[in-house]
C-alpha cells in the first residue's frame, strides 16, 4: 500500500514544498517534451529521483499494478480499426508515449508519498496557498492521505472475506458490484466515525504546523525545479522568438 515509509534518504530530508514544486516542474516538462528523446531524458531523471527517495522501480510497479492495465489499454485500443487492416500500430505511438509519461509522473508521486509524512504535506499546501483557502486545502489533502489507506485496507478485508466464501468464483461484474456496495457502506460508516473522532480531538483550521525543514538540499531541488520549468517552456519561447 502506498503510504509514508520512515527513512533518512535525500527525499526524506527535503522540505515538502520543494518536493511539490519539483513535481509540478517535472509534470510541466513531461507535457512540454512528449517526444521519445524528451521522455528518455525524463526517464533517467525519474530513476535518479526515486533512487534518492529509497524507492525502486519494482516498488513503483507493485504499487501501481492496478493502474498499469489501463495505461497499456489506451494505446492498444487506439490502434484498433473497424476495418482492414484492423490494427494500425502508428496510431498507438502517441497514446503509448502519453501513457508512459503518466507512469513517470506516478513514479514521482510514489516517491513523494513514501518520503513525506501526511502532516508535512498538509502544512506545505497551507504554506504554499495563502489564507484560509490554503488551510482548507491542506486539511483536505491531509484527510485524503489519511483516509485512503484506511479505505483500501477495508476493501482488501472485504475482498478477502468474500474469497473465503468463494466469492471470487462469481462473474467479475458481480464481484465489482459486491465490493463497491460493501465499500460504499464502509466509507459512509468510516466517515461518520472519522468526523466524530476529529471533533473529539478538537479539529482546528489553524493547527501548529510542523517545523520547516528547508535546507541546502532544498536549494538544489529548487534549482532543478527551475531548470525543468525552463526546459518545459523552452519550445514555446523558441517558437515565439524565432
Amino acid at each position: 500500500m502506498l503510504t509514508y515509509e520512515p527513512g533518512d534518504s535525500v527525499g526524506h530530508r527535503l522540505d515538502a514544498r520543494s518536493k511539490l514544486l519539483l513535481q509540478a516542474a517535472f509534470a510541466a516538462a513531461a507535457f512540454g517534451h512528449t517526444d521519445p528523446v524528451g521522455l528518455a531524458a525524463l526517464t533517467g531523471l525519474t530513476t535518479a529521483l526515486i533512487a534518492l527517495a529509497s524507492t525502486t522501480p519494482g516498488v513503483v510497479f507493485v504499487e501501481y499494478r492496478g493502474v498499469l492495465p489501463f495505461l497499456a489499454a489506451a494505446p492498444a485500443i487506439e490502434s484498433l480499426r473497424l476495418g482492414a487492416p484492423w490494427i494500425d500500430p502508428a496510431a498507438a505511438v502517441d497514446p503509448a508515449l502519453a501513457a508512459y509519461r503518466t507512469l513517470l509522473l506516478l513514479a514521482l508521486v510514489a516517491a513523494y508519498v513514501r518520503t513525506t509524512p501526511v502532516r508535512e504535506s498538509e502544512a506545505a499546501v497551507a504554506r504554499l496557498v495563502p489564507g484560509k483557502a490554503g488551510r482548507l486545502l491542506g486539511l483536505g489533502v491531509g484527510l485524503v492521505f489519511r483516509f485512503l489507506p484506511v479505505l483500501q485496507a477495508d476493501l482488501a478485508r472485504t475482498r478477502e472475506a468474500m474469497a473465503a466464501r468463494l466469492g471470487d468464483r462469481r462473474p467479475l461484474r458481480d464481484r465489482v458490484r459486491l465490493v463497491a456496495t460493501a465499500g460504499l457502506t464502509r466509507v459512509l460508516s468510516r466517515t461518520d466515525r472519522l468526523a466524530v473522532a476529529l471533533r473529539a480531538r478538537c479539529l482546528s483550521w489553524d493547527p501548529t504546523p510542523p517545523e520547516s525543514t528547508f535546507g541546502r538540499d532544498d536549494v538544489l531541488a529548487l534549482a532543478l525545479a527551475a531548470a525543468l520549468a525552463g526546459w518545459a517552456l523552452w519550445p514555446s519561447f523558441a517558437a515565439a522568438v524565432w
Partner: peptide
C-alpha cells in the same frame, strides 16, 4: 483445489462486518 479447501474450512474474521456482503 481452492474450492474444496474453502468449502472444508470455513472462516470467520475478527470484524464481522468484513464478512458481510
Amino acid at each position: 483445489d481452492l474450492v474444496a479447501a474453502r468449502t472444508r474450512v470455513g472462516m470467520v474474521f475478527q470484524e464481522p462486518r468484513d464478512c458481510f456482503v
